[in-house]
């Protein structure tokens, strides 16, 4: 049953890893499969995001516009997620994502995701745990970097 495959794909995403399987199943059922041809754009840098995509098959290129032109910064593959931040808060897309091969994705719409979260606060708590962990990680790294920076500046002075 391909629904089960979608649930497995969702569970492989760290953001959803701790969410109850029954809820993931509902999320999978209410999400749609979307195929992209090579060269087709999943999302465009600077545009508001309304969905996240989980890559089920194929690869996609992440491109960032810089003053020197468009630069490819990463390639995404199976079970990677595109635009997870967009379904959590209103920020413009930070990069353009283009299908590199024929791409098979599961599209998680922001509305659908929020419906789920509103109904089952437990899901929100689990996601919050995951985000908090990431924040903790980021903060720690920032602290390290700040220390290093202070060291460097002290050395220069």
């Amino acid at each position: 049953m391909s629904l089960q495959r979608d649930v497995d794909a969702l569970r492989a995403i760290p953001l959803f890893a701790k969410v109850e399987p029954a809820r993931l199943k509902l999320l999978a059922f209410t999400s749609e499969h979307l195929d992209f041809e090579p060269g087709e754009v999943l999302c465009r840098q600077g545009e508001p995001g309304d969905a996240a995509y989980i890559l089920l098959e194929g690869t996609a290129d992440v491109l960032v516009d810089t003053p020197r032109g468009r630069v490819k910064v990463a390639t995404l593959g199976k079970n990677d997620i595109v635009g997870e931040i967009a379904i959590l808060c209103d920020v413009p897309r930070t990069a353009t994502v283009v299908a590199a091969t024929r791409l098979h994705t599961l599209k998680i719409a922001k509305d659908g995701f929020f419906n789920l979260v509103n109904q089952f606060p437990q899901v929100a708590v689990e996601i919050m745990h995951e985000l908090a962990a990431r924040l903790h990680h980021t903060t720690q790294r920032l602290t390290d970097v700040s220390l290093r920076l202070a060291e460097l500046e002290a050395r220069r002075a």
């Binding site: 029954a22 199943k25 509902l26 059922f29 419906n115 109904q119």
Partner: peptide, 20 residues
């Protein structure tokens, strides 16, 4: 079976019923 499993915990006026 699937419907009961997926929708059992949703309130009757939930958007999902209409859509899915």
């Amino acid at each position: 079976e699937t419907m009961v499993e997926l929708f059992a915990d949703l309130p009757a006026d939930h958007e999902y019923y209409r859509q899915f």
